[in-house]
Amino acid sequence: MIIKLYHITLLFFLFTTSFLTAQGCVAIRHFSSCVGSSLENNVLNKGDIQLGLNYRYFKSYRHFRGTHEEPDRITNNTEVINFSHSTDFFLTYGISDRVYTSITIPTVFNSRSSLYEHGRNERNTTFSRGLGDVRLGVGWWLLPLETNPKGNIAIGLGVKLPTGNYNASDIFYNVGLNNEPQTRPVDQSIQPGDGGFGFTADFQWYQKLTNGLFSYASGFYLLNPREINGIRTFRETLSPLLENESIMAVPDQYSVRTGLSYSLSPTISSSLGARFDCVPVKDLIGGNEGFRRPGNVLSIDPGIGFNKSNFSLNLNVPFAIRRERPQSITDIQTEIQTGNPRHGDAAFADYVINFAVSYRFSSNKVPVPPEFMNEFKTK
């Protein structure tokens, strides 16, 4: 039982914090989860269940081409403003001492305010809401927990189901032949789903450095083999040069993070790290046609958690320190076709708020030896 306590608290901290999303128009899809756990918490034995929810919020409005910001967009009131609210409901189940499985059910409420999508002379807002893309996964700790109490690594595999609406629509103003409003699909960045059946691979690693202090690293890659989802963007109505961006792509995405976690007390833990979130220019498998906004964000990621018995609260607020919107495949195609430079932009957020709450239902209670508890208490 000593190893089980150590295993599951680190598992829960690393597994759930590894799926924070990137920011703004770089449309990484709702892998938002941020639950911490102190090392003195009780165990998830075989048959234990962890239930919780993770809430994420951001406002994206700062435009970048490459790593260059375009502050005049805000000055001229031409910036695109996205507000994103998402809540992930998750369940994690202990299959055995080393194997775990999970399901995550996301819901979203997004809004997008812009000029260029509404005739360029009048700012209006479009909305999307509903179920996102459900994820299922299973993971395994590679090293025997009984003989590796101070460090371990887990790998996981999963699937992303296309349960979210990827054709969410709203009213766009001043876009018809006579400037009448039309119902169209909302922008890719606020669609609840992406329309692709995806596969995920993830890892979590930790190593004890001294009493109460741990280093960690984690990450995931989402593989989306589907190239395009068939949903029209209407970008070709803005310019004939954007004909190659008329259909939405289904891009891959990935995220990695690393840092330190420190137990401030038996109930309060803290963390400080860095994370890198990315929608790549090219997918690992499948084609790269269709419209995507590739981009990446490097963030400083502080967090704090509260854990009491089977109950946990956690707050992480990653702050962006570097944002990049590289040339997409369609940008490059247009540049070659016209002989003129072409580099699309994207709007990013300054920070993301992630708040989580969870409760564990134990199949049985086993007393934890005092000598093991002292191993992880702050001296």
Rank of each mutant, 00 (worst) to 15 (best):
M1L: 13
I8L: 05
F12Q: 09
F19C: 00
V26F: 03
I28F: 04
I28H: 07
R29I: 07
H30R: 04
F31A: 10
S32V: 05
S37C: 10
S38P: 01
L39P: 10
E40G: 15
N42R: 11
K46I: 01
G47R: 06
G52Y: 04
N54Q: 11
R56V: 03
F58V: 01
S60V: 00
H63S: 14
R65L: 04
P71E: 10
N82H: 13
F83E: 15
D88E: 14
F90K: 13
T101G: 12
P106V: 12
L115V: 14
E117S: 15
E117H: 14
R120A: 12
N121P: 00
T125H: 06
G130N: 11
L136K: 13
A154I: 08
Y166Q: 06
S169A: 12
I171Y: 09
G176W: 11
R184K: 12
V186W: 10
P192Y: 05
P192I: 13
G193V: 01
D194Q: 14
F203P: 01
Q207G: 06
Q207R: 06
T210Y: 05
G219A: 09
L223S: 05
P225L: 04
R235Y: 14
S239L: 08
L242K: 00
P251T: 06
P251W: 12
S269H: 08
S270M: 08
D277N: 11
E289A: 15
E289C: 07
G290I: 03
R292P: 03
V297W: 09
S299Y: 02
G305H: 01
F306N: 06
N310Q: 06
L313G: 00
L313T: 02
N314A: 13
L315E: 05
A320S: 15
I321H: 10
I321Y: 09
R322P: 00
R323N: 08
S328N: 02
I329S: 07
Q333P: 00
P341V: 06
R342Y: 04
G344V: 01
A346H: 05
A347D: 10
F355N: 02
F355P: 09
V366H: 15
P370I: 10
P370H: 07
F376I: 15
K377V: 08
